[in-house]
Design a protein around this nucleic acid. Structure first.
Length: 98
DNA sequence: ATCCTGACCAGTG
DNA sequence: GCACTGGCCAGGA
């Protein structure tokens, strides 16, 4: 596990429940590109890390869940509202940052 | 080093 | 709204 991945995971763990962040934002805070954040999160599918990373709070810049309904359901359980088109209001629910 | 692959982004038509 | 394009960054062959 590279230091960069650890940094990305730490940042995501700081996102409070009921808030979300975009790949681009997380990348800017971590000092890498948006694709790299996606790559780091993809590794979580096969690689478990402790403590757990709330990956469902990271969505794309369009306010949509990249990973389908399961991610959306998890976020709704935390208080993040989604519109009928499956998008969320980034102005209301995006985290301010660390 | 080069090429390919991604849970991406912003711009353009 | 959609599709395409170029750019972005890390990892592996």
């Amino acid at each position: 596990m590279s230091a960069l991945y650890t940094r990305v995971y730490d940042l995501i763990r700081q996102i409070p429940p009921g808030k979300v962040a975009t790949y681009g934002e997380v990348g800017a805070w971590a000092g890498c590109g948006a694709r790299t954040v996606g790559y780091a999160l993809a590794a979580l599918r096969t690689e478990r890390v402790e403590p757990p990373v709330p990956w469902q709070r990271v969505i794309n810049a369009q306010g949509k869940c990249s990973l389908g309904e399961e991610q959306q359901r998890l976020l709704e359980g935390e208080g993040v509202a989604f519109g009928p088109d499956g998008r969320t209001d980034l102005a209301r629910f995006s985290w301010d940052g660390p």
